[in-house]
Nucleic acid binder design. Structure first.
Lengths: 332, 332
DNA sequence: CTGAAAGCGCTTACAG
DNA sequence: CTGAAAGCGCTTACAG
């Protein structure tokens, strides 16, 4: 068996409590006592049994991050940021995936091992937006994203509408008149695509522009290849266009690619704006102008709210809307 | 406080042991007994305290995955696969990042909370390759990748040399004669870049070709932008070239982009091969030919080996070399 | 500043 | 098939 505190205490000639005090940095310990204990810890190569500590303390120090799929850049970057935020607060992260289409969302929320984590950060893409009560799960949970609103839990989100509106105004300001959208989702009535489309329309309207139905390209797969395919289709149509708003950066990068393949120039012939500001967007050519959702801030707020709930905070559920920014680069 | 097994046992009118049996699917339980217990569990909404179970069992069921940075697509995809493999074996994954340059590698291996996980999967990029003894950490650890060889631990890797050699032969077979490399690292004496370069040279030699020193482009940042920049520089030089071997897919994708910007055609004018086969490579235009390291198999083998060590396996450390494949798509 | 003792909520031989 | 009891290795009031 591994070394225990009892053996450390014996070697140091002190009680268990004193060893515990040293390990947990209890401030008032006589320096000699501390030294003796630390020496014994070294000597024996003692590492505390975390499960025992967790049992005694009634918490594990672990938080869960439930997201669709780490292969999607946005979520990988979200995980990166959340991990940093969790570490700041001395917590570790257990990530669980619900699938590219969120197939396992409800299952994961109700899995039997749930009490392993002290609480959950949940980023749904599939769950029924009209059943927010499903999120009343009986343990601390913070909701992320724009799939569900009005749930009885803390919620961290960005203003998708405003972000898309800002993108529209930026395109208009640059002189774009015929703006295409890539990535709408016909069958959806909630979530980012709907909010972003509405924001885009609003921004265009403010600039005296309207969306030409022929320039709306639909897809629910927001990946590079789809962006390229849809952009090609749009260009094939022959309907004039001088600007593109893509629902996310992967689509935008694909669209830029298709534009270049025609020997057209971004932004000279067609300006392109994406959404999410993933790291690839700062190393594309030209670098992509994109709406930055404020991922770091989302991560920080979410972990902060969750930690507060875990610590017993009982104020009413709150929604935090994080500040977005339009990151202007060469593509628009 | 939360509901405990004791309360379940009381409500069901059985002993703790029986409740435990039901929870853990012990086979020989009388159906009525099981039903009574399950009813009580439902009634009370009982969820077992995982920390207590972990303490009693002497393990947490958690494995750690230590990698540089989730924002790097290769590692995000590795994490994806490892998570799947872990789940297969009923384990959960705690991911820890050591930084884009692996700054915190040693620190993470020796952190005080180490006993939270039953063992670690470790993918180093920075640690001293000549100090494999550093990996003798006193808990189950499986090494990943090609940074370190000869450590006294299980190791899962792919044959980088053979993969690059296959790529070279493929390019030669297609008729390429003047082949450029993107992503060598001058200051390195170990790791993927060194092995891949050697394999490339070997393959070219077999085809009667040699690497032109003017066509070797160095960088230690294996990202899209660098691929594009270096490819531009190579083309600017005016030295003829008709093939490119990139050290990873991000570089290859960037290189393709630079080629297209000159209105050259991939693969017609220049064929391009990458390494890693990340998911973006199947949605690029043209789709990228790439050496697939066998990520799923790496993940499965690594988790399997680690689980065996955790279960007390004491056979000598072994190295598993996973089968790579050259995924032929349009770019070469 | 430090000690003795109870308790956290499970699992697991050992009996029967 | 099921029960009574010990034990996993910490933390935490409570005393002093």
């Amino acid at each position: 068996m591994a070394v225990t505190m009892r053996e450390v205490a014996a070697l140091a000639g002190v009680s268990l409590k004193t060893v515990s005090n040293v390990i947990n940095n209890y401030p008032y310990i006589r320096p000699e006592t501390r030294a003796k204990v630390e020496f014994a810890i070294q000597q024996l190569d003692f590492h505390p049994n975390i499960s025992a500590r967790n049992l005694a303390q009634g918490r594990t120090g672990l938080i869960g991050l439930v997201l669709p799929d780490l292969r999607i850049p946005y979520f990988a970057e979200l995980a990166y940021s959340v991990m940093g935020a969790a570490e700041q607060l001395g917590r570790k992260l257990v990530i669980e995936q619900t699938g590219e289409r969120g197939q396992r969302e409800l299952e994961v929320l109700r899995a039997k091992g749930r009490r392993l984590t002290d609480g959950l950060l949940f980023s749904p893409i599939a769950m029924n937006p009209d059943a927010p009560a499903l999120l009343d799960v009986g343990y601390p949970l913070v909701l992320l994203g724009e799939r569900v609103f009005g749930a009885p839990v803390d919620h961290v989100t960005m203003d998708n509408f405003a972000g898309a509106r800002a993108a529209a105004l930026h395109l208009a300001e640059r002189g774009c008149r015929d703006i295409a959208v890539i990535g709408t989702r016909a069958e959806e009535t909630a979530g980012s695509s709907v909010l972003r489309l509405a924001g885009l329309r609003a921004g265009l309207a403010e600039a005296g522009l309207e969306l030409n139905p022929l320039l709306i390209a639909e897809t629910d797969r927001w990946v590079h290849k789809e962006g390229a395919r849809l952009m090609s289709d749009l260009l094939d149509q022959g309907v004039p266009l001088d600007g593109v708003f893509a629902m996310n950066d992967a689509l935008a990068l694909g669209a830029m690619h298709a534009i270049h393949r025609r020997s057209l120039v971004v932004p000279g012939d067609v300006a392109v704006i994406g959404f999410d500001n993933i790291s690839e967007s700062e190393s594309s050519d030209p670098r992509l102008t994109s709406v930055d959702p404020g991922r770091e801030q989302i991560a920080n707020e979410a972990v902060r709210l969750l930690a507060a709930r875990i610590d017993g905070e009982t104020t009413p559920a709150q929604t935090v809307v994080v500040r977005h920014t339009l990151v202007r680069r060469e593509s628009a």
